[in-house]
Amino acid sequence: MDLKPTESELEILQIIWKKGECSVRDVHDELAKTKDSGYTTTLKLMQIMHDKGLLARNTDAKTHIYSALMSREQAQQGALDKILSTVFKGSTADLVIQALGQHRASKDEIDAIKNFLDEFEGRK
Rank of each mutant, 00 (worst) to 15 (best):
F116C: 10
S85F: 03
Y39K: 08
K4D: 07
S106Q: 07
V24W: 00
I83A: 14
E119T: 03
V96A: 15
R104H: 12
D26Q: 06
A75F: 01
S91P: 09
L69Y: 04
F116A: 14
T34H: 08
T86K: 15
T92L: 15
L31M: 15
F88K: 07
W17I: 03
G38N: 13
E9G: 10
P5G: 10
G53E: 05
R57Q: 14
A99S: 14
D111I: 01
H50P: 01
S23A: 13
D36C: 00
L3F: 06
I15Y: 01
A99K: 05
T34R: 13
A56H: 07
H103W: 08
T41N: 15
V87C: 07
E119G: 13
S8N: 14
M70T: 02
R104F: 08
A79E: 15
D26S: 04
S71Y: 02
A112R: 13
T34E: 13
Y39W: 04
R57V: 14
L84S: 06
T40G: 06
L10M: 15
S85Q: 11
V24L: 02
K107C: 02
L55D: 02
L69P: 01
R72C: 04
T6A: 11
A105P: 01
E73M: 06
M70Q: 11
K89V: 00
M49W: 02
D108N: 06
T6Q: 08
L95D: 06
N58Y: 07
F88E: 07
S8H: 09
L80K: 02
D81I: 05
R72Q: 14
L31V: 03
F88D: 13
W17R: 04
A61L: 15
R123I: 12
V24I: 15
T41W: 12
M49P: 01
T42D: 03
E109I: 04
D2K: 08
F88C: 08
S67C: 00
L55N: 04
D108F: 00
D111R: 12
Q74C: 01
K19F: 10
L54W: 03
T59Q: 10
Y39C: 05
L43V: 00
D94V: 00
D26L: 02
A105V: 09
E109L: 11
Q102L: 13
